[in-house]
Amino acid sequence: MEPRINDLQVESRVHELLDFPVHTNQISSAIYECPNDHIENPKKKPYNCPHSGAKCDVTGDIQRLLLHLRNDHNVEMSDGRSFSHRYVHHDPKHLHHATWMLTLLDCCGRKFCLYFEAFHLRKTPMYMAFMQFMGDEEEAMSFSYSLQVGGNGRKLTWQGVPRSIRDSHKTVRDSQDGLIITRKLALFFSTDNNTTDKELKLKVSGRVWREQPVSI
């Protein structure tokens, strides 16, 4: 099965506008403050559903979100130790914001969200792939991942550290913390050369691994 990119187009732009700024950590953490001033461990704060392209209000711990992603968003799970996904984008000449795709990856019993997204960086059409860790930031930093695209004797590789899903996927995208591919290069890498500009078929391969604990 080839993952297809959902074409949410204008819809999700509106959602972004409707995002109420109450979702910031600062304000929501106050909710967990009990009247006796006992501050609950922020690590136990529920996570938001990482399927953020469409408005989804579901929150919960990682186990609950995994079930929710599988059952309600039909997100598939792959082996994170080595993966290769082919993204097909029909009509790449008309690239809209929030044309994106989410896949789940498993590595060492932990789960990772792999995003592939089309967006405009100051009006320039780009694709971006990046990974987020389903867990807190501290643990996210013990992992690394790589993503690679290529073709015609060229390849572009990103190696990074997954960000926690505490960061919204928009935050990660805007900080450019991932593999960014210009549309021109993506079309150059497009695996099916017969269909030149008509359709984008981009193979993204990569892996996730746990970094050896650094002994000080």
Partner: peptide
């Protein structure tokens, strides 16, 4: 190029 445990690599002709 890279820093902060991230790196971006290009291989080409």
């Amino acid at each position: 190029v890279g820093a902060h445990s991230r790196k971006l690599t290009w291989q080409g002709i």
